[in-house]
Amino acid sequence: MAIVELAPEAPVVAPAVGTWRALRAFLRNPAAVIATLFLLLVTLIAIAAPLIYPEDPLSMVARPFLWPGQNPKFPLGSDSLGRDVAAGLVWGARISLVIGIAAMALGVTIGIVVGATAGYFGGRIDDALVRLIEIFQTTPSFLMLVVLVAIAEPRVESITVAIALVTWPTIARLVRAEFRSLREKDFVTAARGLGYGHARIIFIEILPNALPPIIVTSSVIVASAILMESALSFMGLGDPNRISWGSMIGAGREMLRTAWYLTLIPGIAIVLTVLALNLIGDALNDALNPRLSAER
């Protein structure tokens, strides 16, 4: 009997503890390493934008429709108004990353608070919050985004808040599901037995256990936030005083046949950045989920 009872020694809960093990698994994935390096490069460029191109990227500095390579001063050419495409790309990275990360941070925070409250307390609170989540999820999210930005003035702050408002339900549902299963665990009962209050149990005991899927989803949310911002800017609902990859595509759209590079260059930037974020998300998923990586 004693021998049988000793058996569960092995994997009781997936030890999310192995931060180092997860990091090693992540680094063994070549796609993830390349994606991370690329993203670091984009981040560096975004941070250094004022040093690389001190001038306003929206100012007209060259002859219009310079093709890439035509003039070494403007390696990526100029657009219909004579704005430097390279400068736009560099400054656009700034807007894309800032909005992507800020919207993710805000959305994830709202999602965690709502999802944790619903999943932990259950009952009527859960019912009410699930209804709220469903209202958001049944509304076409891009339509809602357009409406929100149109109501508020299109500025970086309002766009960030609007994107956060349409993305939080994803995180909330995920967190709710995690909390619903985690709140039944023995260690949560033990924590209640030690006199811990709800907030302490939610944030110190349960949340760290729910982090892996949240982290994975967050990287994908940054990618989709960048896409949403680009789409908004493409439709002319971006911040008119800032250049972004989406607004560059939007401005180049009319010249698609004659000056297709105006659409292609920022388009490639968006595709690569979003792809990198998705690859990182996949790699994190594999690295943080020991059961999956063990099966490979």
């Binding site: 809960v13 030890p15 665990k185 023995d186 260690f187 009962t189 033990a190 037995g193 005991e205 256990n209």
Partner: peptide, 11 residues
């Protein structure tokens, strides 16, 4: 509690 294996927070 009776289950020391699961009564501690794994993380």
């Amino acid at each position: 509690f009776q289950e020391p294996m699961t009564s501690l927070n794994p993380v």
